[in-house]
């Protein structure tokens, strides 16, 4: 399973957000590795997904706090995307809980989409619209 790698274009320029993006990538890659390990403990994937869910929830909370404080004009759209991703992760968590996998393809695809598309569009825009952010 391909892991997610930090790329310079992911950087928003906001120290808190970039710091947490890097931490998140670490958690996601751990989860992807566990999901790809067919000989491993299936329960571990669920546990790691729970951790990723909590970390991403916290990360979104921080991003939304910053956007709200800086009156970001696309806050509502950004927030909606956050909620969709959290819903997707929760669906994946329940699928793992119910069937024990395989989920790595869905999980990887969804997170890659988020890190790629989200960073290129929303996060990049946020950075551009908030000089000094």
């Amino acid at each position: 399973m391909a892991s997610v790698e930090w790329r310079p274009e992911f950087a928003t320029g906001i120290a808190d957000v970039d710091h947490e993006h890097r931490e998140l990538i670490g958690w996601i890659n751990q989860t992807l590795a566990a999901a790809g390990d067919t000989a491993g403990d299936p329960g571990k994937v669920g546990d790691l997904l729970g951790e990723v869910f909590a970390r991403i929830s916290a990360h979104f909370a921080l991003e939304e706090h910053i956007m709200s404080a800086r009156r970001y004009d696309q806050f509502a759209e950004h927030k909606r995307d956050h909620e969709h991703l959290l819903d997707d992760i929760r669906d994946i968590m329940d699928d793992v809980e119910a069937a024990g996998g395989p989920v790595e393809e869905r999980f990887s695809a969804r997170l890659s989409e988020w890190f790629g598309a989200q960073f290129r569009t929303h996060d990049a825009r946020f950075h551009q619209r908030m000089p000094g952010a």
């Binding site: 571990k44 729970g50 951790e51 869910f53 909590a54 970390r55 929830s57 916290a58 968590m93």
Partner: peptide, 11 residues
């Protein structure tokens, strides 16, 4: 608190 979620089990 967003980290106060019962789904966390890895830590």
């Amino acid at each position: 608190c967003p980290t106060a979620t019962p789904f966390r089990r890895a830590t």
